[in-house]
Design a protein around this nucleic acid. Structure first.
Lengths: 258, 258
DNA sequence: GCGTTCACTTCCGCTCAGCGGAAGTGAACG
DNA sequence: CGTTCACTTCCGCTGAGCGGAAGTGAACGC
């Protein structure tokens, strides 16, 4: 019965997006059959959609036959973050230069941190953040720094959900985490001790604009060097303050005409 | 006549992509009506498509009612460039650190350079490249560095097309440009003198893998400081060589299992 | 307060673009 | 040579999609 068994009520747009959604950090390269399986669609449907996406360069087919996200989407994505990354980058560079440590910048998206930039050198580091990647808030320095300065209802909402436990050191009891967040707020910066990854500690400070946390700057170091963390706090705070100023200025600037 | 006047032979996928294609660096924020106009579709069609794209966070609606590219596309885009940016970034940092100049990395895409990374400080510089942006090859340092090492048929093809002339100094005569590219190839690096932007000069070197130019590293300085360019060439060449090695190593590494 | 303009937002009859099972193709393997 | 795998192509059927038209809400000027 050709033409039968149509999946009810599903738009083409949602299907196109499901194809794109099949790709993630764990699955950056996929065969047609894998895309079909991951998106839950018939192979021939996927074949049609992927053909058009490839023509537009949203997806690119490598010589081995696998598809990956194409440059066109990367270009388009560069329009997304607004001025934050641009204004923060030079300060991240300075923090990298003055501390010698790898530096990252994250924002809150829902109940996760989303890493929007990273300045790193050639030294191997125990850093699990990936630009464009997401991690939970409560075990990460930047996550704590962001969460601590959110309104109480956001914090309460976050604490009302089950908290995952990446390591045995992760703080998952709501009461204890709430106390931790209050301390972060009082101090102005956050630290973690093997809460996200065994062998890693971090320090982070929020980028505040009008008292609201719009981003956080963080540094991750190996636990073997945990005692060095205290010297990192001040430079992090200084840079976070500079980014706040620069971002506030950028937000207040007149929008480009169009 | 409801249901009439359907635009013939146009797929939904192509329409979705046309909506996304309406956004560019000059038009990063658009109203629904502007998207409709730029994509050449009826307002109600665009309304439907944009609704779904917004739900998926491919587009985000700002408080002023305008749409911009959403974080989800930015995240997806981070999967695109492969290892090049990752392996190059630390070396770009070093070049920035050792020269004090802003540094960018570009690849060839068709007959344009596409900027894939940039390391910049707080000093204002006459640099027109934007990460995710495109420029013509012949008036840019990185463009020349890339083009000079392409096979002859690519060079011939590039030279057979009309060459734009951003400044009076731009080399647009095919013969003259061909000679310039031969010199670039012999020297191993490229320079420009106010060919892309009045007031700006650049130096750039290709990142070669198996003799093929996979990227180029460049620095742009103000023409007032053009005499300093000669001191920049050696560090650029060194870094380009390091990136070549690192990228070759990354390409040769076993692919992550999936 | 009223009329006008602008930017959507909703509605719905009509139809063709899209679906997906089935058949076909090509490459690799034993 | 047969089997398996990963597509690629085909085509009858139908409901998702189209877009003009109508409706809504906000802003503005008189």
């Amino acid at each position: 019965m050709p033409g039968g068994a149509r999946q009810a009520g599903r738009s083409v747009t949602s299907r196109v997006l499901a194809v794109l959604g099949a790709f993630d950090a764990e699955h950056p390269r996929l065969t047609l059959t894998e895309i079909a399986r991951r998106s839950g669609m018939a192979l021939s449907t996927v074949h049609r959609l992927v053909g058009e996406l490839e023509a537009w360069q949203a997806l690119t087919r490598a010589p081995d036959g696998r598809f990956h996200v194409g440059l066109r989407l990367w270009e388009l994505g560069q329009l997304a973050p607004g001025p934050l990354q641009q204004v923060a980058r030079p300060w991240l560079q300075e923090l990298f230069g003055s501390t010698g440590e790898n530096v990252h910048l994250a924002v809150r998206d829902g109940f996760e941190v989303l890493y929007v930039d990273k300045v790193h050198g050639r030294r191997a580091v125990p850093i699990v953040s990936r630009v464009g990647g997401r991690l939970p808030m409560h075990p990460t320095g930047v996550g704590k720094a962001l969460l601590a300065f959110e309104p109480d209802r956001v914090v309460a909402s976050y604490l009302s959900r089950p908290l995952e436990r990446p390591t045995p050191h992760t703080i998952t009891e709501p009461g204890r985490l709430a106390r931790e967040l209050r301390q972060v707020r009082e101090r102005g910066y956050a630290v973690t001790h093997e809460e996200m990854t065994l062998g890693s500690c971090s320090a982070a400070a929020p980028v505040l604009v009008d008292g609201r946390p719009v981003a956080a700057v963080g540094i991750v170091v190996s636990s073997r060097r945990a005692r060095e963390m205290q010297r990192l706090v001040e430079p992090i705070l200084v840079v976070a303050g500079h980014i706040s100023d620069a971002y506030r200025t950028a937000l207040a600037a007149p929008q480009p005409p169009q």
